[in-house]
Amino acid sequence: MILWRQRVSEKVETGTGRPERYGPVAIILHWVIALLLIFMIGLGLYMDHIPVSDPTPLHQLHKSVGIVTMLLIVVRIIWRLTHRAPALPKDMPTAQRVVAGGMEGLLYLFQIFLPVTGWLMVSAMAMPIVLFGLVSWPLIPLPQSVMDSGYLAEIMPDVHNWLAWSFGGFIALHVLAALHHRFIRKDQVVDRILPHHGSRH
């Protein structure tokens, strides 16, 4: 049913060969991942004062949700690469189009690198990952020399934290841009990804 609705949505074009808005699969993935990322950032900030070397149930929850989020991001990227995105407003300046495309690319890169660095971090520390206490998730295999040196285990928490803070900043810019389109430009950019689309007055 969802796939059928996706095809119907993609048949409604703007004259550029692109759909007017994202289909239901893309919309669901966008908002589910957004909620998971907000949860992960909040949980990460709360855990910031807890040493990674002193694992708690919160660490295991953080790792579990992180792995699930990473898998959903992979699905989202594959879906995005195989389905055309809606066209941007025709009156949007070229510079803003370039910035929008660059921002989209950066957000995808952060969504990939952030969970991967977390996975690499716990792998370097040889810390087990048990998804929600039920299913063991494999660690990234690393050379024994890397494990013995301990250098990767030492730097990865800082790398992961730096990426998380940077990602949070880009998310804030993304939200500000959405608010700008919604309330200042008053165009249809935000409507393309909203779960419920109605007429604008």
Rank of each mutant, 00 (worst) to 15 (best):
M1L: 10
R5H: 12
R5D: 08
R7W: 12
V8E: 13
K11I: 04
K11V: 02
V12S: 12
E13N: 11
G17S: 06
G17L: 05
R21A: 12
G23S: 10
H30F: 10
W31R: 13
V32R: 04
A34V: 13
A34P: 04
L37M: 14
I38K: 02
I41P: 00
L43A: 08
L43G: 01
Y46A: 10
Y46N: 05
D48N: 11
H49K: 13
I50E: 09
V52I: 14
S53A: 14
S53T: 03
P55E: 08
P57R: 12
P57C: 05
L58D: 03
Q60L: 04
K63W: 13
V65I: 15
G66R: 08
I67Y: 15
I67R: 11
I67D: 07
T69H: 04
M70R: 05
I77E: 07
I77F: 15
I78H: 08
R84G: 02
A85S: 15
L88F: 10
L88R: 15
K90Y: 07
D91I: 05
D91A: 14
T94W: 00
A95L: 14
Q96E: 15
R97N: 12
V98F: 13
V98E: 00
A100L: 09
A100E: 06
A100N: 12
G101P: 08
M103A: 14
E104Q: 14
L106Q: 03
L107G: 08
I112P: 04
W119D: 02
S123K: 11
A124W: 01
M125H: 06
M125Q: 10
M125A: 14
A126E: 01
M127K: 13
P128H: 03
P128W: 04
P128G: 03
P128M: 05
L131R: 10
F132R: 09
G133M: 01
G133I: 02
L134C: 03
V135D: 01
S136P: 04
W137D: 00
L139N: 13
L139M: 05
P141S: 08
P141N: 01
L142M: 10
G150S: 06
G150P: 11
L152Q: 05
E154M: 12
I155R: 15
D158S: 14
H160R: 09
H160T: 01
N161G: 11
W162A: 14
F167V: 03
F167R: 04
G169N: 01
G169L: 01
L173A: 09
H174W: 06
V175L: 06
L176C: 03
L176S: 02
L176Y: 00
A177S: 14
A178D: 00
H180P: 00
H181L: 02
F183E: 03
I184A: 11
K186A: 07
K186Y: 09
K186I: 02
V190H: 02
D191G: 06
D191C: 07
